[in-house]
Each structure stands twice: as C-alpha cells, then as structure tokens.
Amino acid sequence: MQNDIEINNLFFSYDGASVLEDITLQYNSKDFLAIIGPNGGGKSTLLKIMIGLLKPLHGEVLLFGKNPLHVSHEIAYVPQDTIANKDFPIKVLDVVLMGRLSKSKFFAPYSKEDYAIAYEMLETVGMKGFENQKINALSGGQRQRVFIARALACDAKIIFLDEPTASIDTAGQMSMFQLLKTLNKTVGIVIVSHDVNVALNYATKVAHVNKTLYLHDVSKEESFTLAQNPKEHICPVELICARRCNHLHKELL
C-alpha cells in the first residue's frame, strides 16, 4: 500500500549548516503524528519540507506519491500564530473563506456553497457566532480554532499544524488537542509541538526530531502507554534532552 507521506534519506541545511540528516519516515492519514524535539532541532523545517514550502537538499519527499507542490490542494497548513499586524482588516468569516481559494472560480467572488462550508467549519471548531469579529480581536486559542476551520474548509486529506498551541494556556491546549483528535477520525493530522504530553495523550505516532529522526509508535511502546495517564497530564519536567538520540527514552519512566 502506498503511504500518504513517504520520506527517504532526506537531508536539509540552511546556508551550509546541517539541520536534518538522513530522515526516513512513512505516514498514513489515519495516524495522528506529533513531531517533537528541542528548539532548533528541525521540527518546523521538516514540516515545511513535507508540504513543499522548502526544498530538500538530498533525498525524496512524496506526498500521496507525488511532488508535494503538485498536491498542495489536497493538504492544508496551519502556520504558527505569528500575527504581527494587529490591525489587519479582516473578519473571521473571510479568513475561513480563504480555505476555499483553490476550489472556487478564479475571478468570481466566493459562492454560496463556499459560504455554507465556511459557516459549517466554524461550527465544527466551536467558533459559531464569531463570524463578523475582527480576527485579531480574538484570543490566541480562538484564533487557532479559526485557522483550523480554514484548514478544514480546504477539504484536505491531511492537516499540518506548526506549534498551534504555542500561545495558548493549558486548558485551551487540551481542548484544542481534543478537537484535533476528533478530526483525526476523518483527516490526517501532522502536528509540530514542543509539548511531550501531547505526544503521549493524543498522538498515535511520535517522531522525535533533533537533526535525525526517531519514530515512536505510541500504541505499541509500553513505556508510552504507561506514561499515558490523563489525570497526571500536566507534567512539570521537560522530558526531552537536547542531545541527539536514536533510542527509546527510558527517562520517560
């Protein structure tokens, strides 16, 4: 069976400094893949290579068996919440409508169907009633939900999220991941996160990236299932060390 994402022997560097080395990864959209690792370890870079925003130095990246840029209408991307321009004149509904760009006629305004889909997706993410608010008047968590609605409006097979909870409080993070978990029943979820707890409680596959990649299968690895205790969800200790590693993290236990 063909994998939805297939990465073979990928290398990447920024201006000569090696960022990713010999990455190999297979992913199917039934999985909830969390990419974790230390800052500067190459998580976001790997995500951007997967969707074709960056080109690998060496190696092969296939999305649905094709060049990622040729299938970008099949995927959706939720970028990091980095809105610098806080007065940008756009309301929530118009942001979600952007997800319909590649499905609607080029010169025509968005159709009634596009609007119906936008309203529906806002309801799915629990943001019904916010349609006419200015996007930047929302809180970080609400804004991320709108961006997820926009990704859903794309009618994508896989949604890629880059640190979607970076600016959200813990309660907000948990409800966000609950939402993603629910969505994962119908679409693939690939998420970059600095938060190990996410990996333990919601992801089915965990890729630890620090130049190299090690893939953990959450359901099969006993150490993970033992640590999966929702009642002790908030862990005060950062569990991932910044060294390169290619082994299972015994320190989790």
């Binding site: 925003l53 991307y77 970028p79 590649s102």
Partner: peptide, 12 residues
Amino acid sequence: SFDAQFAKLRGV
C-alpha cells in the same frame, strides 16, 4: 496580504 504561504499552498 494576510498569509502568503497559505495562499501559495492554495494555488495562488
């Protein structure tokens, strides 16, 4: 204007 990377991935 709002999000150039997203627009690019949507075929703009």
